[in-house]
Design a protein around this nucleic acid. Structure first.
Lengths: 233, 233
DNA sequence: TAGTGGTCTAGACCACTCT
DNA sequence: GAGTGGTCTAGACCACTAC
């Protein structure tokens, strides 16, 4: 006995999790039904349901109607990455954030970008280069393309004071995105902006953002040498 | 009007999300109370509650007792990274997976590792080098340390057939972990195992795994050149 | 202190799916 | 067909917090 008093769904959830961790119920085992558990814990079935639903969302158990609830055989580890503004990344390190626009051009979408954003080749886009600094050290170099058609207002934004990320977050707040992470070698341009030798390994994140099935922006962010992105589960 | 029929919590959730996206309720705005929404939608308050709870979990809205529910000003983007077995990563690409143990040594924990895992310096650990291949091309190089004290059974595992990741997942299934991602340059050892020139930028993931406040393992995984990790939100 | 979300209950019906 | 989870309801009380 754990001596834990079971009153709420969190208690049920934690008790079930503990039994799984302690192998009272082994991987692949069938758990008691919601009805049986609610009888044991002396609570309503809805309470057990909510507890088990949370464990299922975490990938700890698998639930199927009729079959019942089983301990997951291969628990899927879901790490949450919180994608925040660069400003926040910097300020979370107690560093002074500074943003600088490098270049801003209204151009026609090159083929690879049109393909990436599912635009017709030559569609009008805005191409932006910008730098983000932490305590005046280069933090990351941003190479961004914005679909002018999806965000016409962007024509009036000069991005000298506010970065395109913050501007877009205010303008198109509830978008979806695809992310890609990798390592690249600094080319001459990056070595210049990030103050490192050509060939230095850099951590890079690419993001394509969509709003209501229309591509909004594609951005390639190259972090300073040694940058580490952290997460947990 | 959307013409959508509102019956379940998912309908309520989607309708509310749509109103937020369409700026019926702007960022920072106060939403109607659960009671008011349940009246409007003709459902129980519990149904509205569940709908709004999901949106709050996604970071779309902020809820506080007494104050009410507001549209989030800075929606936090949460990308989910599904951390799976290397075998699965490879097989998801329709490639043939192959694993090979390179080296296995029972040693005393060096200082940096003891610090990383919160062990006493010199504690017994198992040090493992292994390779993972996709269609017989190098996929990733694994450099792992296992805390023998936390997993005594590991002494009997030779890791010639089954990789340490799969073995540990069966042995210590429901652990927590800290992850770190970055870019490094291939040293001589990595260039050898991953068949690339010294200095090649490589994507690297480090993971420290814990079970019930005890460190289980620390692993450094160096991916083949050009590897991209993907996610979305 | 009063208003709001957080949770629980007891019961009901539905939807999926195994046999 | 029958067993299981999925969801909804109507009502209740609680916990937090702005006022």
């Amino acid at each position: 006995m754990t001596g834990r008093t079971i009153t709420g769904f969190q208690d049920v959830r934690d008790e079930v999790l503990e039994r799984i961790q302690n192998r009272v119920w082994e991987q692949g085992d069938l758990l008691p039904t919601e009805q049986e558990l609610s009888d044991e814990f002396g609570c309503a079935r809805a309470t057990v349901n909510r507890a088990l639903r949370e464990l299922a969302e975490r990938g700890i158990i698998d639930r199927k109607r009729k079959s019942g609830t089983r301990v997951a055989v291969l628990p899927v580890k879901q790490a949450k990455l919180e994608i925040t503004l660069t400003r926040q990344l910097v300020e979370d390190r107690n560093a002074l954030y500074r943003y600088a626009l490098v270049q801003r051009d209204a151009v026609a979408a090159p083929g690879w970008l049109a393909s990436q954003l599912q635009l017709t080749s030559g569609a009008p886009v805005l191409h932006i280069h910008a730098m983000h600094y932490a305590d005046n050290q280069p933090f990351l170099y941003e190479d961004r393309w914005i679909n002018t058609t999806a965000v016409p207002k962007v024509a009036d934004a000069d991005f000298t004071e506010v970065g395109p990320n913050e501007w877009l977050l205010a303008e198109v707040p509830f978008s979806t995105a695809e992310l890609s992470f990798g390592a690249i070698a600094a080319d001459e341009e990056l070595s210049d902006y990030l103050a490192c030798p050509v060939g230095t390994p850099l951590f890079q994140m690419e993001r394509t953002t969509w709003f209501q099935a229309q591509a909004v922006t594609f951005v390639r962010m190259s972090f300073h040498p040694g940058y580490q992105m952290r997460s947990h589960y």
